[in-house]
């Protein structure tokens, strides 16, 4: 399964809706896309089915830089929390 990325704008925020499997190779692509201030980006993760360690670390970094993560799957959230530890 690949990762599909859809971009939209909502109330001044750039919303990236991700679907599918999020792996290390997609992280680089996402970094290219996130070319603006992370604080103006919302990442909708509702359709993310799988994420690997690189993806989780990346998401954690994004959130730390001010990006808002929406609909984050529970296991991803938990994994992110563990990574913090």
């Amino acid at each position: 399964m690949t990762l599909r990325i859809e971009r939209s704008v909502r109330q001044g925020f750039t919303v990236f809706t991700l679907s599918g499997r999020m792996r290390a190779e997609q992280v680089a692509k996402l970094k290219e896309l996130f070319d603006t201030d992370y604080r103006s980006i919302i990442l909708d993760l509702q359709e993310v089915r799988l994420a690997d360690r690189d993806a989780v670390k990346f998401l954690r970094g994004c959130e730390a830089d001010g990006m808002k993560l929406e609909n984050c799957p529970a296991y991803v959230r938990e994994w992110m929390d563990r990574e913090k530890d």
């Binding site: 399964m1 690949t2 599909r4 859809e6 809706t17 679907s19 599918g20 359709e47 993310v48 089915r49």
Partner: peptide, 11 residues
């Protein structure tokens, strides 16, 4: 059911 609706066609 395990594939997001936005990806099912491409899958």
């Amino acid at each position: 059911a395990s594939i997001p609706s936005s990806l099912i066609a491409s899958e």
